[in-house]
Nucleic acid binder design. Structure first.
Lengths: 352, 352
DNA sequence: CTGAAAGCGCTTACAG
DNA sequence: CTGAAAGCGCTTACAG
């Protein structure tokens, strides 16, 4: 049933020309050709239902036109980013192979990397954090260009660039906002497992406290999956509870929703007594009630720059930053985050 | 900088054997070989840092070991499914190329399909709904095996199988549950743009009303992005408002959260006055307050069967259904959905 | 047990 | 403007 597919040999025979000519016509190079051959070849190609075999073409051209992207997972933040990256790569004639490392599992990451290198991808995009040193060495020694995203403090010679979300700047801004809204104490609820991505937020939070916090009481907490209830209990038991409203910056919108739910469950009024800010501007931040203040992430900007840096290397095209102010000259590029204020919705309190 | 990579020719020379032998050793076929050659080849391969060129191998074998998956989007439901599919394919030695059709855009779907067929993927997994007839014809006429997911009523000769979530059965169950919880009226909030996926839910809802609803008043509504507020307004204005609690089944958890939020905003108590059930068992259904009752989706079961059906065709391996009861004999396979009850959390009412 | 040779489907100088 | 030929890196009968 699976008939051998049509090749340029078939077309050449049917059209009475050489396979070189067929190839020339079908790829419209700068080679001059007669109108008639062009028409003849194109027609028979269409008639025979020809579809180019990309594997063969790539093998011959010594280029795969395939790019690899390894994200920690497909859910939430990274799913959106991956979708954006895929679209952008397509626009430039590349194929993007996306893999999830199953939540930063080094062995999965390694398997995918090996596979990608075996396929001779032209370039690789990796999460700067999840990358093990071993994996990195494999990539680098292979000579495959690498662009990191959300990777801080990597040696400059390893990657073409590190395109990072400015979690620190965003968190700073969030603290400023909470203080401005009258918060009398400040809490950061982080996720230590997220390592540097958490560290950046924390650094921004601390800087914010320093700059805007005066001598407001501060508390640092860590949320391990679903422990939002305990987080809130700790806040309630603490002295912070006496000086309301309490301002809480949470690792991401999902965790922020959990924290808010736990607060509501315990009878706290949001945002009267507790003001919460998430991070990511996930759709859920507006679907919940009250809606969450959050930090918006410019996925497409991040994707634009990551792809741009890669193509700059792969093709000749020099790449110019969409926003000149972002060009720090170094290899680490920071994507700004924007605060989305959503304090409007009324407060909320449980009934029984 | 990008040194030509090591090939089997290099290994052959260094080890003093033929490339055929190198290939034989590296692929451990049933060909008998001397221990010594094996060792020699393996050692030099390692030494030279050889990595097989999959493009070349595949071209030669006339097989790509690549599978294509086209989902409507990477977010929510389909992101999880894609991740599962990818993992499963890897387990069986295949590479899964996942593409998002940007929310069922036919032209994107077509572009991806063309690309996938050009790469000579061994098999294709497509959303049964988004597939245009034109695209389908291209796949079928190419002889590439196709497995549909969430596609109802397709002609049997087009795909190997259609692996569908049993939205109808799940919705039926949800209605039974709402009635059992004492609901005095029933509402279905659908998303008509989702076509058949919505239709299946609606059918299940109606059947549920028939079987368990007695003569309870019923209302059918449609949610266009973010119009949850208006949905709730309509319910409040209707006569349903007089006979509480109202039971609402919503298209998915995200929309269910929006509806719940809108209800809370208007002062309705959940779940006292309004009982809501979502679909998908998304993490957010437990992060919100009150937590949402929902229908769990067995992604990995769906992925198992989809991949199983494909491999049954691609390799010899006969595939046996994980659950014999699901084998309806036909090509349409239904993945059961399980109700997750979360009525426990206390009710909720806005303050001002 | 090992190797010479043909072949996978295309591209790309190069010669005409 | 067109085509013969070499080559991309591997696999696979087949002969020894």
């Amino acid at each position: 049933m699976s008939k051998r597919s049509v090749t340029i040999v078939d077309i050449a025979e049917a059209a009475g020309v050489s396979i070189a000519t067929v190839s020339n016509v079908l790829n419209r190079r700068n080679v001059p050709m007669s109108e008639e051959t062009i028409r003849k070849v194109e027609d028979t190609a269409k008639q025979l239902g020809y579809r180019r075999n990309v594997m063969a073409a790539n093998l011959s051209r010594q280029k795969s036109y395939e790019l690899g992207l390894i994200v920690p997972s497909f859910t939430g933040y990274y799913g959106q980013f991956a979708e954006e990256m895929e679209r952008k790569a397509n626009e430039h004639g590349y194929h993007m192979s996306v893999f999830s490392a199953g939540g930063m599992k080094p062995e999965m990451e390694k398997r995918h990397l090996e596979m990608l290198l075996s396929r001779r991808v032209d370039g690789l995009f990796c999460h700067g954090l999840a990358m093990s040193h071993e994996s990195t060495r494999a990539v680098v020694s292979d000579g495959t260009p690498l662009v990191l995203f959300n990777g801080w403090g990597w040696p400059a010679d390893i990657a073409l660039a590190a395109v990072n979300l400015d979690f620190a700047g965003g968190s700073l801004e969030a603290v400023r906002h909470l203080v401005q809204q009258g918060c009398q104490s400040l809490v950061y609820v982080g996720r230590s497992k997220a390592l540097e991505v958490n560290g950046q937020r924390l650094a921004g939070f601390k800087k914010g406290v320093e700059q805007y916090g005066g001598d407001l009481p501060v508390m640092l907490l860590d949320i391990t999956d679903c422990a939002a209830d305990r987080i809130v209990d700790e806040v309630i038991r603490s002295s912070l509870h006496e000086t309301q409203p309490i301002g809480i910056l949470v690792f991401d919108d999902y965790a922020a929703l959990s924290v808010m739910s736990a607060a509501l469950k315990r009878g706290l009024r949001v945002p009267d007594q507790v003001k919460i800010s998430g991070i990511n501007n996930d759709p859920l931040s507006t679907a919940c009630y009250p809606a969450l203040t959050t930090l918006d992430i410019a996925y497409d900007l991040q994707a634009d720059i990551a792809i741009g840096k890669m193509l700059e290397r792969l093709e000749e095209k020099p790449f110019h930053m969409p926003d000149a102010s972002m060009d720090t000259g170094g290899q680490e590029i920071h994507i700004p985050m924007k605060l989305i204020q959503r304090e409007s919705s009324g407060a909320n309190v449980p009934t029984l």
